[in-house]
Amino acid sequence: MVETILNLIVQGVLIGGLYALFALGLSLSLGVMRFVNIAHGDMIVLFSFVLLSLTGVLGWSPFLVALILLPVAFGLGWLLQRFLLQRTVGKGILPILLVTFGLSIIIQNGLLEAYGPNTRKLSGGAIELAALRLGPIDVGVYPLLVFLLAVALIAGLDAFLYRTAIGARIRAVADDPAAADLIGLTSARIYPVAMGVVGITMLVAASCMSVWTNFDPSIGPSRLLAAFEAVVLGGLGSLWGTLIGGVIIGVAQNFGSQIDASWQILAQHLVFLVALVFRPQGLFARS
């Protein structure tokens, strides 16, 4: 009994790392830059398909391909913000919702057209099967590494955002784009940098996710929902909070699935709602 519970918690925590990776870019755009990117999940799925194609052609590990593509991911994020999303800055919530909603639909249908509706998965190689025996429970090496990667990425991003000059500029523009423009801190130059960083987190999430679980062109929105819950649970603007949010969701799902398979997602949403009632600002909101 104790072992089962312990096992559920440990596995839940580890999958929480994957959710946190998935949510990290959203945490940046929503919590720091303060806009909702409806296409967040679809963009990650898009990266997954890009990895699928490239690993197919090159025959390399998806992690190696992702590593090489990191500058491309930054560039795509940068371009997206500079030439599309930037047009909506300072115009309220509706334009950005509409634009990213449209983007979401375009990506989903484009992927459906190009790859068909089938479920896919990437192979990570031998590491996927490796396991460690920790006391009474087995821990997969791959989930453990993903969790550690999430921790490392969050630590790096947190330092970038709160300890560097460029991070301060990003937060300044997020605080007040008009004030930034007045003193020559051109918001239109800063936001694309931030979105480039978001692009990097999306690619990392895509590589980890597509080795861990199945994906298909339509899965973006449900992933977006989980990411959204992780971000809000953890508190807007707190990257570590997003990790905790992801962990809570992972653990809730695991316990829910013990009741019934259909309870897996229901438990996730219930925990989210309950947390929202008692702590609407999230657990670790940066006031």
């Binding site: 300044a172 007040d176 007045l182 003193i183 940066r286």
Partner: peptide, 12 residues
Amino acid sequence: LVPEGRKLFPTL
């Protein structure tokens, strides 16, 4: 420019 209303970045 020292803008009217100061225009600082409040969370910085």
